[in-house]
Design a protein around this nucleic acid. Sequence first.
DNA 1: CTTCCTGCAAAAGTTTTGCATTAAC
DNA 2: GTTAATGCAAAACTTTTGCAGGAAG
Lengths: 147, 147
Amino acid sequence: MIDVHAVAEDRLRRLGQRYTAQRRALVSMLVSAGQPLSLPEVLQAEAGLKQSSVYRNLAALEQAGVVQRVVTDDGYGRYEPAEDLTGHHHHLVCSRCGKVRDVDLPGSLERTLDRTLDAIAGRAGFAQVSHRLDLVGMCALCAGRAQ
Amino acid sequence: MIDVHAVAEDRLRRLGQRYTAQRRALVSMLVSAGQPLSLPEVLQAEAGLKQSSVYRNLAALEQAGVVQRVVTDDGYGRYEPAEDLTGHHHHLVCSRCGKVRDVDLPGSLERTLDRTLDAIAGRAGFAQVSHRLDLVGMCALCAGRAQ
DNA sequence: CTTCCTGCAAAAGTTTTGCATTAAC
DNA sequence: GTTAATGCAAAACTTTTGCAGGAAG
């Protein structure tokens, strides 16, 4: 188990930035959430956080490679820990309410994907390729509320 | 080869809407683009288009199932023809300039994906699941301009 | 002639920024 | 003490909406 906070602090310091209490709190929140959080969710989760500071801190953490921004179609950007901190995974997105949930794929499928996608990207002249695979559907709750 | 305009007109009419010249132009543009276009790209591609009308028409076309909105992380939403009009495909996204390009996967991989993802989604209580797989990397142009 | 579409301007919603103050090193 | 982070308010940017005039059926 790696020490997320130690890594975060180190990566920020390399950029001349500080690992303040608020940044630590954000990292803790995102790690324990187990799913990407939108700004309103972050603000609601911890009272006293100020909108502009959260945006600035998430941007700083993203630049340092501690968190990454993921984009859904519910208007808000969402943030989650960087992949090398919590491992490669995918998202199950509800097309109705926008809720996102982390899921894993079988290792064999991941390997097949990686091999195939690398080849395709290479043919198109793309470098440093990663993939982003989301399952989009309707969650049980929204399916209940009819169409 | 299906007649995209006939399908578009039919789907709009079912909702009591009209297939106007502007909507036809938008559909033509998106079909021939071969990649999802952002609003600035649409406006630039054809002079005389008005921003609010384009947003409204794309929303109408989306509701009718003629086009779909895809989301990248360059700030703008992008639109492309609905999957049943141009076929299932994926996107190669440049993480630097935001450019998007359509790509296909081998049929065997698509089938494996579908089977596996259906099972995963079912376990999580999700219904009507489709997948969205993007390759994210750096395009040749951006790679040229150094890091 | 009724219903929908268009265009302008204004509003809404998310994210960014300027600036003065406070905290970290 | 110097540099960076914070909070407030204001701005920027994408998208949506109200309303009056015009086009389609």
